[in-house]
Write a protein that binds this DNA or RNA. Structure first.
Lengths: 181, 181
DNA sequence: TTTAACTTTCAATAATTACTGAACGTTTAG
DNA sequence: CTAAACGTTCAGTAATTATTGAAAGTTAAA
């Protein structure tokens, strides 16, 4: 399990980006390693390739499973577990996106819904509630949009994109069509 | 500078979410505090309200300025600096979005562009490059889309949203229109 | 100038987060 | 049943990140 320089480079980069993508360095490296290898890897292979302890691999896999990013495979007559990415690159990105929405947006949306129902007693609270309402509306829009976009295949997205490569044009389209009918 | 329970609750929540939004707890609280207050605040007021040191406020403001999330205001005859959110809620969200794209996507895109130009020497490298190509294409699509969506006003977005509340319908629309012409 | 009112910086330290490795659990082949 | 081969857990420790507060920097009024 020694990586070619090019592949190692990619894996190390994934590690550096890991924390920005929502996990930590080691887990970032694990994702990179699994994605870049055509064949599933055992926990020991991962530990060896990344030079980390066996226990750390176990915890990392657990975390990745909570994100639904890896799946376990078995080879007949072999007791070891083999780990592989749970879907295409596109699938993985969707899963990360979805999970982050749950962690970064949903809790705030819940809080704001409660707060907005309360009555404001002072002018400060009045203003505060208006702001919270704005944030709430923004987050709802973002949530709905991300759900919409996730529903599309990469091909649909790219097709939509090439339509003059501007969403504003889609709006124009819509207006035109609505006028005709 | 003592906060009403309702407002304090919101500020504390922003703190808890802070690290998920790309900063740390204290900076999250600062954003919450500035957004929820109608009037700009001085560094000392922020320190007092959040019960943190004056130096910490200074560093937090610096960080928020690098994200372009706060602006400084002055009151004539007063040497203190007053801090306020740099734009509407929508503007702030856009700035965060943009900054995160720079940190979370751009560096990887740069790396992948380089890697893809290299020639693959082994079958493993061949596969690795195909995967890197997929990731690259995905990130480019995401980048372009986020740029498109950011260009729209909240009103445009919501109008587009209400169009049967499904982007797939827009694609259908497009197809219909193209057939007609 | 000097001094007072402010802001910034940064070394020391506190708080948080990640990692190791040994102990324990589980499964299966012999 | 026993031992070997694997996976998991978690207390202790290492690494990283955030915070304080004292010192230094800046500005402007007197």
């Amino acid at each position: 399990m020694n990586l070619s320089p090019k592949i190692e480079n990619f894996v190390l980069h994934c590690g550096e980006m890991g924390s920005r993508w929502g996990f930590n360095r080691t887990i970032g490296q694990m994702v990179g390693l699994l994605v870049i290898n055509e064949h599933p890897l055992t926990a020991n292979q991962i530990a060896e390739a990344l030079k980390i302890s066996r226990g750390n691999v176990s915890m990392g896999i657990k975390e990745l499973q909570s994100w639904q990013l890896v799946k376990v495979q078995h080879i007949p007559g072999d007791r070891k577990e083999y780990y592989a990415p749970n879907g295409t690159i596109w699938d993985l990105a969707n899963k990360v996106f979805e999970e982050r929405r749950k962690r970064e947006i949903d809790p705030t949306l819940t809080l704001l819904r409660d707060q907005i129902l309360d009555t404001a007693n002072t002018p400060e609270e009045k203003y505060a509630q208006e702001q919270m309402q704005s944030i709430h509306d923004l987050l709802e829009t973002v949530t709905k949009w991300s759900a919409e976009l996730q529903r599309l295949t990469p091909e649909q997205l790219q097709s939509l994109m090439k339509l003059g490569s501007s969403v504003s044009k889609v709006i124009d389209l819509k207006d035109k069509l609505l006028k005709k009918s």
